[in-house]
Amino acid sequence: MSNLVSIPKNGSLAKTKANAIKGFPFVSSFFDDMFLEDFPSLFSSNFNAGVSLPKVNIKETEDSFHVEMAVPGMKKSDFQINLDENVLSVSTELEEENEVNETGFTRREFGYSSFRRTFTLPDTVDDNKILAEYNEGILSIKLPKKEEAKKKPARTIKIS
């Protein structure tokens, strides 16, 4: 199902021959091995503080693709799911503000978090029948395939 999403493991540029210097390892590979090996959680994650990309499972069946995203602690109204051309995007923005006034002091706390995941859909997806539901911390999106894209059962052809 690599046609739905293609993200390098550590967020670096994909390793291609265009990045290579003749006789040397790929530059991306060289720096990954040298510098990131000891600090994977520090340097291979996003640098945006307060942003955490939810884990995603993508599964293909004969009739559809299924995207499951782990996003506990939210409500279904927190999500924005959009389809533009063949790009599906899932995003959310949460702001929280809390103020406590007690004798002699005021404590004010606030927080902000957001994420956005995008997926390029294959042409085989019937974009008029996409369904989404949120249940117990899991956002599930069903991407049905067009009838002509569904796998047809094997059959025998008679010779006349």
Results as ranks from 00 to 15, higher is better:
S2V: 05
S6E: 13
S6P: 01
P8H: 12
P8T: 15
K9Q: 13
K9I: 13
G11I: 03
L13T: 10
L13E: 15
L13W: 15
A14H: 11
A14K: 11
T16V: 12
A18W: 14
A18V: 15
N19H: 05
A20R: 14
I21N: 10
K22P: 02
G23Q: 10
F24S: 13
F24Q: 13
F26M: 05
S29F: 04
F31N: 14
D32R: 00
L36N: 00
D38G: 00
F39I: 01
P40R: 02
S41Q: 07
S41N: 09
F43M: 05
F43A: 03
N46R: 11
N46K: 08
V51P: 00
V51D: 00
V51Q: 03
S52G: 03
L53F: 15
P54W: 03
V56F: 10
V56Y: 09
T61Y: 13
F65W: 02
H66I: 14
H66D: 08
A70Y: 03
V71Q: 01
G73H: 05
G73R: 05
G73E: 04
G73N: 08
K75F: 12
S77I: 06
D78M: 00
D78T: 02
F79M: 07
F79W: 06
I81V: 13
N82R: 08
L83F: 05
D84E: 14
D84G: 03
D84L: 06
D84N: 12
N86Q: 14
L88Q: 07
S89P: 05
V90L: 12
E93G: 01
L94E: 09
L94Y: 02
E95C: 00
E97F: 04
N98C: 05
E99H: 00
V100G: 01
N101T: 00
E102R: 04
G104Q: 09
G104S: 10
E109W: 06
T118H: 09
P122A: 10
D127F: 04
L131Y: 14
A132E: 12
E133G: 02
E133L: 00
Y134C: 07
E136W: 06
L139W: 03
S140L: 06
I141R: 05
I141M: 11
P144Y: 08
P144S: 11
P144I: 07
K145L: 09
E147I: 07
E147S: 08
E148Q: 10
A154S: 08
I157S: 08
I157T: 11
K158Y: 14
K158S: 14
S160I: 06
